[in-house]
């Protein structure tokens, strides 16, 4: 069994990982857990006169409808923020452990910087390897970069870097991660891509 770089990392509890605070749930009784079983529409609603979004009885409680329409309803714009970037990369699994980069604190919300620009914005993600000589830092950095380049619109430039002073060969790794051509070539290298695919499987 190949010797693991860091056989015994510190593991964060799942409930400690930063999550998006659910929108202030409208405190109407009918929205809350146990009350959800009561249909929100009156038993004598006239199905012939249709209010948008509630044509069908069960439409309102469509189980797959897990998203919350924020204040502006259908047409408000929700900007991409660092929490969204975090949610994209935290579930990536570590190549060595059955744990995610979020749980291992390799990616952390405060180390994600978005510089909005027009037309091009940049996203900088600083990753913290679990130990200073981790040989897999490049693969992890590559995984983060490939995931973001696939998930973000093309107007974002993705920069992934090892945090200052957290890795013995940080600069060399950073240079590799910044080289778009080597990243593209890596994505065509079969063995590397199968490892990356396994790492990205966690992102459902």
């Amino acid at each position: 069994m190949a010797e693991m770089d860091n056989a015994n990392p510190t593991v964060l509890a799942a409930s400690d990982l930063p999550t998006r605070k659910p929108l202030q749930k409208r405190a109407k009784a009918s929205q809350l857990g146990i009350f959800a079983s009561i249909p929100r529409v009156s038993p004598v609603r006239d199905p012939f006169t249709v209010t948008p979004g509630q044509l069908y009885e069960s439409d309102t409680s469509d189980s797959e409808e897990d998203f919350e329409l924020d204040a502006e309803g259908d047409n408000g714009v929700e900007e991409i923020d660092s929490q969204e970037i975090y949610d994209l990369i935290a579930p990536i699994s570590d190549p060595e452990h059955p744990l995610s980069l979020g749980e291992l604190a390799v990616v952390n919300l405060p180390h994600i910087y978005i510089t909005p620009g027009n037309p091009i914005s940049t996203v900088l993600v600083e990753i913290t390897p679990t130990i200073t000589h981790c040989s897999l830092a490049t693969v992890i950095g590559l995984g983060v970069r490939v995931r973001l380049e696939q998930a973000l619109p093309p107007r974002y430039r993705v920069d992934v870097r090892i945090r200052e002073g957290t890795h013995s060969t940080g600069d060399q790794v950073n240079k590799q991660l910044a080289d778009k051509e080597r990243v593209a070539a890596a994505c065509e290298n079969e063995s590397l891509m199968s490892l990356l695919r396994k790492m990205l499987e966690g992102c459902k």
């Binding site: 897990d66 919350e68 408000g76 929700e78 991409i80 998930a151 619109p153 093309p154 107007r155």
Partner: peptide, 11 residues
């Protein structure tokens, strides 16, 4: 690709 830039986070 453009849908990655949809105004709504859930989409």
């Amino acid at each position: 690709v453009p849908v990655l830039d949809d105004p709504k986070r859930a989409v």
